[in-house]
Simulated assay, not measured.
Amino acid sequence: MTTLITGARGQVGQAVIARLHTAGHTVRAASARPAELTVPAGVEAVELVLDRPETFTAALQGVRRVFLYPEPAGIHDLVKAAEAAGVEHVVLLSSSSVLGADAENDPLASHSLRVERALADSGLAHTFLRPGAFASNSFGWAHAIGRSLPIQLAHPDAHIAPIHPEDIADIAVEVLTGTALQERAYTLTGPESLTFREQIAQLADALGRDLTVERISRAEAERQLGAHLPAPMVRSLLDLWAAADRGPATVHDTTHTLLGRPARTFRQWAGENAAAFTAH
Rank of each mutant, 00 (worst) to 15 (best):
A219K: 14
T55K: 00
V251P: 05
R52C: 02
W269V: 10
S97P: 00
L176F: 01
A243V: 00
S95Q: 00
A103Y: 01
I17T: 15
L211S: 00
G10C: 10
A8E: 03
I5M: 08
E88L: 14
R184P: 08
D51V: 04
P165Y: 10
R218K: 15
P150C: 09
Q268N: 10
A73P: 09
S96P: 00
R235K: 15
L92F: 13
E83M: 06
G74E: 06
R114P: 04
S31W: 06
V87C: 12
I145S: 04
A23K: 03
E36A: 13
A41Y: 04
G62I: 06
G146A: 00
H143W: 13
I168E: 03
P53L: 04
V87P: 02
G24A: 15
A15P: 10
Y69E: 01
L240P: 11
G86Q: 09
P165N: 06
L99H: 10
L124N: 09
L108D: 10
G271M: 02
S136Y: 07
P191W: 01
L225R: 10
T250H: 14
L50H: 09
K80I: 04
D121P: 07
H252P: 02
D210C: 06
A158M: 05
I5S: 07
L99M: 12
A274Q: 12
A263L: 03
A161C: 10
F128R: 12
G247S: 02
V234R: 05
Q199G: 09
I216F: 02
A125C: 03
E192T: 11
T255Q: 01
A118Q: 12
P107C: 12
A169R: 03
N105M: 04
L238Q: 14
R114T: 15
S95I: 08
E214H: 12
A59E: 04
T26S: 13
N105P: 05
L92W: 06
V46G: 11
R215Y: 02
S217P: 14
